[in-house]
Computed example of a mutant assay.
Amino acid sequence: MSDETSVRLGLPLLQSGQAQKEMFHNEALTLLDLAVQPVVESVGMNAPPTAPVAGICWVIGTAPSGAWTGQAQALAGWSEAGWRFIAARDGMAAWSLVDGAIARFSDGAWTVGRVSGTEVVLGGNVVVGARQAAIADPAGGSTTDAAARAAIISILAALRTHGLIAR
């Protein structure tokens, strides 16, 4: 941590004997307002809007221009004092209004609407867990039921397509 800013969000820290501490405190609060549970208009916009409204935020794209130059993939928020930026860090998430989904920053990029985890739990019950081994399509047998076989093949295809069993 530097003596002047916080480690993760780069918030300005108060210094002993510092004049006008309220300015630094207010700047830190403005940046926290942008960073905590952000809701953004969109993800990946490269040019700032022409008439931003105070309190509205965006996730900047990879080739920013204008007032956003040098702030690739950062959170950008307009305040009454101008643009404020928070650099993206792995694990950051923001609700994207235009997409109606969560955007997450990981491995140097924002992804929208992607959910990852190890299982899905509904009502306390695991309904989707780890991927299972491949299951072969039915073949052979002494009695062949074409309709049942077609149904089983369709079920297996759906499970493979959704990634629930290996191909």
Rank of each mutant, 00 (worst) to 15 (best):
A147S: 13
R89T: 07
R131E: 04
V115I: 12
A139H: 00
T30C: 12
A76F: 05
L13M: 09
A150S: 05
N125E: 14
A130S: 06
L32N: 01
Q73T: 12
C57M: 13
L31F: 00
D90M: 12
A35S: 07
V43N: 06
G129P: 03
C57S: 14
W83N: 01
G10A: 07
A109W: 04
D3L: 11
R84C: 15
I135V: 15
G123Y: 08
I153L: 07
D145Q: 04
H25K: 13
W68D: 07
T5H: 11
G140Y: 02
R167Q: 15
A19Y: 07
M23D: 14
E4T: 13
D33E: 13
G129F: 07
T30Q: 13
L32C: 09
V127A: 01
I152G: 06
S65I: 03
A134H: 03
V121R: 10
A148L: 15
G77V: 03
R167V: 14
I135S: 05
T118K: 12
I86V: 12
T5S: 11
A51N: 13
A93K: 15
P48V: 00
T62A: 12
L14N: 03
S6M: 12
L156Y: 02
V121T: 08
L34M: 05
G66P: 10
S142I: 12
W110P: 08
L31S: 00
D137S: 04
A134D: 02
A139K: 00
S6L: 10
A63K: 08
D137P: 09
T50Q: 13
A166D: 09
P12Q: 02
V98L: 15
Q73S: 06
V112S: 05
V121G: 01
Q15I: 00
F24T: 06
V121F: 09
D3Q: 10
T144A: 10
G82N: 06
R114C: 11
R149F: 08
A136S: 10
V115S: 09
A136T: 11
A151H: 11
I155D: 14
E27Y: 03
P138D: 12
L75M: 04
W78D: 07
I165M: 02
L156F: 07
A35N: 04
R8I: 03
A74N: 13
A67T: 07
I165D: 00
V126Q: 07
T69A: 12
A19Q: 05
R131H: 05
Q71R: 13
G113A: 00
L31M: 02
R89Q: 13
Q73M: 11
A67M: 07
A63M: 07
G44F: 02
V115F: 09
K21G: 02
G77K: 06
S106T: 09
Q71M: 06
A150I: 09
G100K: 10
G117M: 06
P49E: 05
V53K: 11
G66W: 08
I153G: 02
S116H: 06
L13W: 03
M23H: 11
S42M: 10
G129T: 07
D99Y: 05
S96V: 14
V40S: 01
N46D: 14
A134Q: 08
A146G: 07
T50F: 06
